[in-house]
Design a protein around this nucleic acid. Sequence first.
DNA 1: CGATGCCTTGACCAACCTCAAGTGGCGTGG
DNA 2: CCACGCCACTTGAGGTTGGTCAAGGCATCG
Lengths: 262, 262
Amino acid sequence: MNGKHTTTAPTVLVTANPARPALCGDHSQTHESGHCSSCSIRHLTICGVFKPDELVHIEKLMHARELEAGQRLFEEGHGADFVYNMTCGTIRLYKLLPDGRRQITGFALPGDFLGLAARQGYAYSAEAINHVTLCRFKRRDISDLFGRFPEMEHRLLSVATDELVAAQDQMLLLGRKTPIEKVSSFLLGLQKRIARFNQRATGITLEMTRADIADYLGLTVETVSRTFSKLKKQGAIELARSDEVVIRNSTLLEQFAEEGER
Amino acid sequence: MNGKHTTTAPTVLVTANPARPALCGDHSQTHESGHCSSCSIRHLTICGVFKPDELVHIEKLMHARELEAGQRLFEEGHGADFVYNMTCGTIRLYKLLPDGRRQITGFALPGDFLGLAARQGYAYSAEAINHVTLCRFKRRDISDLFGRFPEMEHRLLSVATDELVAAQDQMLLLGRKTPIEKVSSFLLGLQKRIARFNQRATGITLEMTRADIADYLGLTVETVSRTFSKLKKQGAIELARSDEVVIRNSTLLEQFAEEGER
DNA sequence: CGATGCCTTGACCAACCTCAAGTGGCGTGG
DNA sequence: CCACGCCACTTGAGGTTGGTCAAGGCATCG
């Protein structure tokens, strides 16, 4: 109902080619070259504290890993000896109740740090949604570096703080928002996060299924689907395919995110 | 319906005397003496890293504060120059939606660290529920100490990690648990936290109102009240007064917390 | 071209919310 | 000392939202 977005025809979407996992081919990242020096998302991670000539310190502790879609990285409660830096792909982080109900606590994207939430054992399970590459470190090795590179611990503390702020936003969402507010907030938040590591994106590619979104927002698949349809009908978004969202009217979407339909 | 708890008559409850705020008179804490050396909950906080002869470093940065019930400590979004250590009382931490809906993200109890969640400005508002005493520090002063006392930053990181784990548990609760599971989890969690700083407690004194509990669990006042009644009728808890809970059958309560009524 | 998996849509239902009335504790003031 | 008002809590009746169940669409893949 207004015009912040005047782009009528969404040109090319982020992963128009489903054969190639998002971004992994486009950017020369850690795993392409095997060197931290060419990592395009280093500035987003705790590795960003190292000067180019210091990278060797972290590089020799790093172990590159890849995951297929559906593969589990670690499981809730299991010994948490490793931490990870996402370089490519999407991971779902979730907790289960004994009867199988699932709550997704977050989606990890490139640049995200994984494994912070661990008191004794990981606080959640982590599962690849698509093809994922990441850097693995022994938790021990990282904390051993804190002495020589205190800036690294500062960075980690700020990562933890940011996650905490996000977790509290999510509590507000889960406890008090209506479905349309939940879905709108989710789309806006995802768009913002994608922009962190990919400025060229013109739309949002939903790597996760409707079931994942439902379990993230405390809804059912059906309600998520119905809400997408509603947002589409209202002109807030466009759904070229079920996994490709273009925000048509972000003002309207923001309105939905904060106050529902009124 | 079983007997883990055989105590039939709950002897004396924690705050039987409502004239005296919980614990503040019983323990000699910071504000009684004005000295960190006599602080009974120091071991729970970041101050626990200091040896007795080092306490002077933190003590000269500390500013004691008191709050009346209902008084606000800080507001969401406002400049977050200070951090706090709770020494006595209960504080509600909450976020609001534009139309007034409220989500309580947590209750701060003695020993808790306040003000971590702040990117730009506090991530939530904080309001005293009863009479509160706390230690205030300039955020700046604390991080200046990190260089000399790296153990302090480790501790803060672990506080942040613990909060993160708790936040994720709360997401599971808000997104996927039923009212009876929510209320049961809440009671068990609160009991555990109270035990951290008061081992003598035989019951749970609910300093917060039903409305607070509702806004913490993503429910309405009425549903919370009905659920308490149900737990009482089922023999899981006892409600001598509306703000004094005794867990009669913790096995049953744990069962309710995990799987509802089946 | 059929099988599969995911998504969408409709009809129905129940859990939780809303609205309303009543209770009880506590402080105040006559 | 009792009456009153206030406030929080409880309980009931009824309504709405989002969940459940079921069917159909659509893309992908062998």
